[in-house]
Design a protein around this nucleic acid. Sequence first.
DNA 1: GTAATTTTCGACCGCATGGCCTACATTTAG
DNA 2: CTAAATGTAGGCCATGCGGTCGAAAATTAC
Lengths: 217, 217
Amino acid sequence: MRSKITPDGRRTSGRKKSTFIEETRRRQIVGGAITTIASAGLAQASLARIADEVGISKSVISYHFDGRDELIEEVIVSLLAESNRFIRSRVEQETGGPDRLRAYIEASFAFMADHRENFVAMVDIWGSFGTPEAKRAFNATAYDPCRRHIEAILRRGQQDGDFRDFTPRTLASTIQGAIDGVMLQWVFDEAAVDLAECAAELTVMFDLATRVAGDGR
Amino acid sequence: MRSKITPDGRRTSGRKKSTFIEETRRRQIVGGAITTIASAGLAQASLARIADEVGISKSVISYHFDGRDELIEEVIVSLLAESNRFIRSRVEQETGGPDRLRAYIEASFAFMADHRENFVAMVDIWGSFGTPEAKRAFNATAYDPCRRHIEAILRRGQQDGDFRDFTPRTLASTIQGAIDGVMLQWVFDEAAVDLAECAAELTVMFDLATRVAGDGR
DNA sequence: GTAATTTTCGACCGCATGGCCTACATTTAG
DNA sequence: CTAAATGTAGGCCATGCGGTCGAAAATTAC
């Protein structure tokens, strides 16, 4: 059997022997779940359907995950991590506030274009947090890190004199909001928006919005 | 009984006599559905729970709606219509591109602030369109009108010389995206973003982004 | 090779759901 | 006032769900 839980809720030292098959299956199942969610919606992504997508029996999922909730949580973590890793690596290749901000926006859209399925699934999941508490928790683990990343870029840029004076937090919300809002429309209909054009528009706009007065760069 | 459907799918002439109780109940049920969805999530908003929220029997819903799907559709229509009506009325009170654009953005945020429940429900519903076709259909009926409204404002502003030269469609996507993206964060956690500040930031930004070169207004 | 362990399968269970039906209450029409 | 209609209630049912179980298969260890 897999990962046992101690009475106080922590995992035992499991996760060591034969972690290979274990983790492979988990990744496989998570992948199948993402595909199923993206194509049929979270509500229709039952264990049976996901198992069918992967080509395994339903109980295999129950065996490798503590339940549907844990699977979905893993899906969320996976979706967020993959996107964030990519964006961070792109930003770190740049120096200076403006270039780093531009890199953040462009990387966000570049990743979107290459991983449409991920974002379709993500939007489906957005609506799945029943209670306000669950929504807040998701915000804290998913959204806040992104905002703080942008905020850090903005703040450092201000210190270096690359940016004008503004409230980093507010602008960070606005930037992330603009990216996600365009993404949302694109998720609903791929043909409805031109990702590249919107990305270009946003980079120019936020460049203008962060410039120091009279800086004609 | 209510609204019968002809074999070819259209409604009979019903909807005329005693439309009062009928429509009152429908509105009441739709309202209860919105409240339930917003507080518990769409998945948990069963007919039983909605009926409980309204204080009626489950079968009353079945009587006044052709099924849960039709109810949810009515909820969507209701949410969109209410918001659009408000925004349009505000925009129409202004003249000139810049003022009308500003009115659109400000009205969007003003309506949000006063109808949080509506938007929490809306985000829940966003994820409920299983098939890509359903997503596209929603985009066509919900998103496109908004974009076209902005587009019309932008285009007319360009004709009047109020705006610089840009692609109205792309900028419209960007504007609507920015509004919705901020809204999304606010839905997840009311305290995470300052609506008023974001609104102010966006109005200034999009004003800058649309100005004719050298127009120091 | 064989015993022990891990992994998979398909059947099964309890439960909540959407929808339906019948009987009862209320309103409307004449 | 009465009969027809419109509206409501609560019980009922088939369906699909997440999850469990014991047996079978596959893998590993010795």
